[in-house]
Structure formats: C-alpha cells, structure tokens
Design a binder for these strands. Structure first.
Lengths: 149, 149
DNA sequence: TAAAATTATTTGCATTTTGCAAGTATATAG
DNA sequence: CTATATACTTGCAAAATGCAAATAATTTTA
C-alpha cells in the first residue's frame, strides 16, 4: 500500500490553485472560488433546490444561504419558488450567471487541456478514463465522500 | 475536447470532503482543513521556511503567518531561526504535530484504499499511475498551477 | 561603508466567511 | 386541528482573509 493520499493531495491542490486563478482571470474579482463552485453545481443539476446544491457541495446550509443571496444580488442566480411546495426555492443561473460560469469553464478546460497536451494521446486517454473510474468508485463508496453530518 | 473540468471538479470535491471528514474524525476540532494542509506540507518538505510552505499552498503570507501561530500555540509546530539568516523562520512538526499528521494521513489513506479496493488490480494500478502522470504534467506546465500573484 | 533597496515575517485593521442556535414559514402526520 | 417535520433565513460571535504598513535582517549600490 503506497501513499495514495500524497498523489491526491497534490492533484487536488493544483486543481484548486488553477481554478482560483481561472476564476480571477475570467471575471475579475466578481466571484470567489466557493461562489464559482455554486454556479458550477447549479448549472449541472436540473432545477435544484437550495438543499440539493448545499448537500452536493457539502456546505453548511446557513453559509450557503448567504452565498446564494450574494450571488442573487450580483444578478448571477435566480431564486424561484417551487410550484407545489412553497418552502422550497429553486435555483437557476441568470444569463449573466451562465456567462460567468461558461467563461470559468472555458478557462479551466483550456488550462487543463494545455496540461494534457504534453502527454501522448494514449496517456491522455488513460488519465481521463482513470479519473472517471475513480469518481465512479467514490460514488459507490458509502463510507466516504459523504458530506459531513 | 470533452469537458475535462467536470471530472477534476468532482474528484477534487470528493477528495476535499473526504479529507475534511478524516480531519474531523482523527482529531476532533483540533485542526481545521487548512491547518491539516499546513501540517502535511511541513512534513513533506525538508527544513522549510514560512515562505516555502505558504507558496506551496498558494496561501497569502499574512494569513499563513497567523495560522502558523495558532498551530504553534497548540503545540503542533515548532518555529526555529535559520542558522545563517535571521530573517527566516524554519518550520517543523513537534512530536504531537507529527502524531496528528500521521493520524490524518492514515485515515485518508485508509479511506482512499477502501475506494480503490472496489477496483481490479489492473484498474487500481492504472489509476494511480495516471494521477502521477497528471501531477508530473502539471509540474511541467508553467502557465498553470502557479500560486496566484 | 553608509544609505537604499530587497527579503522574511508580523501586526493593524476592516471585511468576509463560517456555523450554531433560534426564528419563520410551509407542508405533512396523527 | 394540533404536533412534527422540512426548507430556508437571521442573529450572533468566532474564525479566516488580505491589503497596507511596520519591523527586522540581509544585500546592493553608489
């Protein structure tokens, strides 16, 4: 059993730094890293509620509530009432929010593809397949990757 | 060009959640996630200065300085003067700090190995080799993974 | 070699983020 | 209908953040 954590820690840190940089360079200081995660996740899910996104990101709901308010005030997120349950708020990106999310997405992808371009075609495909494999395995695991509490 | 960010984003988030959980379960509220990163990095480098660690983690030096103070007060870190340059502070883990770091490391590794154990031997090796490959490629890249500013 | 510029770290703020406890509002169960 | 549960918001108070400025120790340079 080698030290697996090492590799993940480094990868994770690098990706985090990259994301932060992209986040800055795309849209100035308009959105923080956590806010970009929120935009990302709203864009990925289908008509998500507040809970859905907060759970997916493993964020405390009260902190999340405030971040959503900030993003809504900035005009990047729209909060709509659930049609049949008035307690629930459905989140969606506004056109401006989508623009920001797309800009970040493009920049991150460009950076990552730049890194991947230094590999052979075979290596590149192996790497991508591996990450998918690992994500699937994480998904299957019950004990880990469950948001705290 | 597929959406590479997706995979990394998910992997990174999962690993982050896992680390946070491990951090909690190992040592209660004794150390936060960022503090665990600091312990990790000090343990990895050889006689690192404050700058070394702050840069490696992409942290603002002033925030870092305070976190180091907190960890030193908790007795997990020792600050020693550099032998030939009095401006520099060399960081090291105390025995207690090392114990905490080892506990976190063990827990994270155990969790990760649990996830990996659901794969075939071949898949597992491919995944680990891939991550190493990717980290190396990140290392080579000049444009990305450079701490902001 | 003395003043100027550089480097490493710390401190003073003011802002932002965080999370627990408690509150409000809506829906469901008994 | 009352009681309980669910979804979200607010009131704090603590922690984390980062810029500007301070301090302290080297180097550079004129």
């Amino acid at each position: 059993m080698e030290n697996v954590r090492n590799m993940f820690q480094i990868m994770s840190r690098n990706f985090g730094l990259l994301s932060e940089q992209c986040c800055d360079s795309c849209c100035g200081q308009e959105v923080s890293l956590v806010q970009s995660h929120i935009l990302y996740e709203i864009n990925r899910q289908h008509n998500p509620s507040m809970q859905d996104i907060a759970v997916a990101l493993g964020m405390d709901i009260t902190t999340f509530s405030r971040q959503v308010k900030t993003l809504a005030d900035k005009g990047f997120i729209k909060k709509s009432p659930h049609p049949s349950d008035q307690r629930i708020t459905i989140l969606s990106l506004t056109p401006e929010g989508l623009t920001v999310e797309n800009a970040i997405n493009l920049t991150v992808n460009t950076q990552l593809n730049g890194v991947l371009s230094t590999m052979s075609e075979f290596e590149r495909e192996t790497v991508l397949r591996s990450i998918q494999l690992f994500n699937d395995a994480m998904q299957r695991s019950a004990t880990c990757c469950v948001p705290p509490k």
